[in-house]
Design a protein around this nucleic acid. Sequence first.
DNA 1: GCAATTGATGTAATAACATTACATTTCAAA
DNA 2: TTTGAAATGTAATGTTATTACATCAATTGC
Lengths: 140, 140
Amino acid sequence: MNAPVSSPALTKNQTLVFDVLDRSEAPMSAYTILDKLRDHGFRAPLQVYRALDKLTEFGMVHRLESLNAFVACAHRESSCCGAGHGHGTVAFAICESCSQVMEFHDHAVDHRLGDWAKSKGFKPSKTTIEIRGLCQTCAA
Amino acid sequence: MNAPVSSPALTKNQTLVFDVLDRSEAPMSAYTILDKLRDHGFRAPLQVYRALDKLTEFGMVHRLESLNAFVACAHRESSCCGAGHGHGTVAFAICESCSQVMEFHDHAVDHRLGDWAKSKGFKPSKTTIEIRGLCQTCAA
DNA sequence: GCAATTGATGTAATAACATTACATTTCAAA
DNA sequence: TTTGAAATGTAATGTTATTACATCAATTGC
């Protein structure tokens, strides 16, 4: 047991895309990723989008909706709330100055939004929480 | 007193764009709005984007980041938390079947995210909360 | 072994969303 | 009445994402 929850062996393209994202300090757009991978034979956006779709499905990559960009999941195997990836809603704090992204969970927030949904009969499929602003360093 | 908090008289284009959004059941993209306003002399996307920028600034329109689309603010003058627009973070529940959007506040969520930010020294400027899923009717 | 199916890939073209740059107009305040 | 700020008009371009279709590779069932 304790095998990766939802990360089957990655294909070549998925590995390339994940590695680029994982090594990046900042979120990257699909086209920026494409440019980084031209040397590895990537020629078209679809190659990137397809890999991103799968990686997102596996929970290894997150899409930042307010940026139209992507980040590698910051949670390593088996974090706080259950084994590995596949946890509840993830929230992001995005620094508009240095582009650093902090990823976090908040059970209370999850729970509260869940309660709201339940009270309205709304069935959530995906929840986005993104805080834009200035990180401690940049705000100083 | 009790004058609108942040809604100076709208210009012609702002009024046209707001009216289209306000009458719509569903969120609209900038280009959809443009098409609706061709009869009124709109020719270019920028006319729409400029109006949307101002309306968003006034708090009369919200951008749905996960849809790249816009909705008129559902809160009428002087809602629960302070006078009119200009309240805290607004959250959205977006039905992926019928496109209906529910707008709501949750002080507890606001507060919780605010506390997280404070604990990290992060200074929020704008917070996005969007729940995608199925509304009660469509989930049935 | 070998068709049949399924998932991944390659490529081109196009669609959808958004901004830059620059010229012109409007209108209220000095 | 000038003048300065905001709004507008228009064209061109930049950025993000998808559709369509052909090919390739691995697995499965026979």
